[in-house]
Design a protein around this nucleic acid. Structure first.
Length: 286
DNA sequence: CGGTATTACGAGCTAACTCG
DNA sequence: CGAGTTAGCTCGTAATACCG
């Protein structure tokens, strides 16, 4: 194994990009989220993507954007959330193990060399405020609800959620990193057929999305592909519509009754959603 | 119970495509 | 190249929930 230390940037590099064994160590001298210059060239290909940072043993996964700015690679957005959720402090040692694609396994050691384990209070749970609120909405608001598997029960124009569907929603929410805004949508016929559009909850768009029509990017966990989608802003209601949304629907084999959780990751001027999908009928695509 | 907010859906216009 | 057809974009509104 080839190793070297660069004093100035406190980085140790092992077997750079020779496969799943590639890794780096970073000493948290500050909460600066820039990738060190001497290693950033190895990750230029990941620029603009959303990295998956998985805490070894905790089962927790965080999505952090990697953007290029001023000749540097910066972990943003989501980095501060990752830091706070994992109780990272100065002089902690972070070990990023490259697992392929855009996935890293992270170990965190304190300044004395002991590994820091995630505390109960920081574990990803359903008590993420924004998500819990959304799930409560799902339970109470028949507009957003659905029945199990492909048996979709419509109440007027809306559909009805049962216990199994609520459990699926909670399972989805557990995949979201604390702090990121998110909303849940249950796929209806009209979302995937004919005009093919999907309404974004007005409360979410008012709080987190721009008041203008623009392009956003959808990203699937554990998948390299990204889908540019048109976000339409209109007074009173906002939506994903059009061919690009249709393409996302088709390539992810979305069916009526499937549940999608849109986790928002905002990077500089680019808005990215990590889309967690719970299939009504499990297939090999999702 | 009535006014307001939110969501779902479809109408209508326009652009792109196809075919003779 | 023009007419007919299809698909996409934008907006309006009906239906329903929410709230005072």
């Amino acid at each position: 194994m080839f190793m070297f230390w660069t004093r100035s940037i406190n980085v140790k590099v092992c077997d750079w990009l020779t496969g799943s064994g590639s890794s780096l160590l970073k000493v948290m001298r500050s909460m600066n989220q820039c990738l060190p210059e001497k290693v950033m060239t190895h990750f230029l290909g990941l620029s603009g993507q959303v990295l998956e940072l998985e805490r070894q043993g905790s089962g927790g996964t965080w999505h952090v954007g990697l953007i290029r700015s001023g000749g540097k690679l910066i972990l943003q957005p989501g980095w501060s959330t990752f830091v706070s959720a994992n109780n990272i402090s100065q002089n902690d040692l972070l070990h990023f193990k490259f697992m392929g694609e855009s996935k890293f396994e992270v170990q965190i050691f304190d300044s004395t060399g002991y590994e820091k384990f995630i505390e109960e209070s920081h574990k990803l749970e359903i008590n993420i405020p924004a998500i819990k609120e959304e799930l409560d909405d799902l339970s109470q608001n028949p507009r957003k609800c659905v029945a199990p598997y492909n048996e979709v029960i419509y109440q007027g124009r809306y559909i009805v959620l049962n216990a199994r569907q609520k459990r699926r929603a909670k399972q989805l929410a557990s995949e979201v990193q604390a702090g990121n805004p998110a909303f849940v949508i249950v796929i209806r016929r009209s979302n995937i057929t004919s005009k093919c559009n999907i309404c974004i909850p007005i409360k979410f768009s008012a709080e987190h999305l721009p008041k203008e029509t623009r392009d956003v990017v959808l990203h699937r966990p554990k998948k390299e592909m990204m889908w540019p989608v048109k976000y339409y802003y209109r007074k009173g209601h906002q939506s994903f519509e059009g061919t690009l949304w249709r393409k996302f629907v088709q390539e992810n084999n979305l069916q009526e009754g499937d549940m999608c959780l849109f986790e928002m990751v905002k990077a500089a001027r680019q808005i990215t959603f990590v889309v967690h999908i719970s299939k009504a009928i499990p297939d090999n695509v999702g």
